Amino acid sequence: MQLPARFQTLPAYAFPRLRELLDPHPGGGEPIHMTIGNPRHASPPWVMDVVAEHAASFANYPQNDGTDGLRAAIAGWIDRRYGATVDPAGQILPLNGTREGLFNAAVAICPERKNGTTPVILTPNPFYQVYAVAALAMGAEPHYVPATEATGFLPDYARLDREILDRTAIAYICSPSNPQGAVADAEYWRTLLNLAERHDFRIFADECYSEIYRDRAPTGALEIAQEIGADPERVVIFNSLSKRSNLAGLRSGFAAGGPKTLAAMKQLRNYAGAPLPTPLQAVSERAWSEEAHVEASRARYATKYDIADSILGEVPGAASPQAGFFLWLPVEDGEAAALRLWRETGVRVLPGAYLSRDVNGANPGRGYVRVAMVAEEDEMARGLTAIRDCLYA
Rank of each mutant, 00 (worst) to 15 (best):
V183R: 03
S240H: 04
Q91W: 01
P218G: 05
R370A: 15
W342R: 02
N246E: 12
Y144E: 00
I164C: 09
A140F: 12
P94L: 05
S297M: 10
N194L: 09
D161C: 14
G181K: 02
G29Q: 09
F326W: 09
A287Y: 06
A272L: 15
W46D: 05
V183C: 09
A292L: 08
A375K: 10
A272D: 12
T261N: 15
E233K: 10
P45E: 04
P126E: 04
G346V: 05
I224C: 11
H293D: 10
A319P: 01
P321V: 05
L95K: 02
M48Q: 13
Y82R: 11
K243D: 15
Y61F: 13
A184R: 01
Y392W: 06
R81P: 00
E344H: 07
C174R: 00
I224Q: 08
L102W: 01
V371A: 08
R298G: 03
Q322P: 03
P316I: 10
N178T: 14
G313T: 13
D231E: 15
P179W: 01
K114A: 08
Y188H: 11
R17F: 02
R244V: 00
G367T: 05
Y128N: 07
T261Q: 13
S210Q: 15
N38L: 12
E335M: 11
P176M: 00
R366G: 13
V236Y: 01
N239M: 07
W46I: 03
A147P: 07
C208L: 07
T219N: 10
F7T: 02
M380N: 05
P176H: 03
G66A: 13
N194W: 04
A263G: 08
P321R: 01
G324I: 13
R190F: 08
I74P: 05
Y209G: 03
T67M: 05
Y354N: 00
K304L: 14
D166N: 14
P124S: 09
R17M: 11
R81D: 08
S240D: 14
A248D: 09
Y82F: 14
T303H: 12
Q226D: 06
H54V: 04
S43N: 06
W328V: 09
A287V: 13
W288T: 12
L3Y: 07
E233D: 10
P88W: 00
E332L: 03
W77L: 09
T191V: 12
V294R: 10
L102V: 01
D87V: 06
D87M: 02
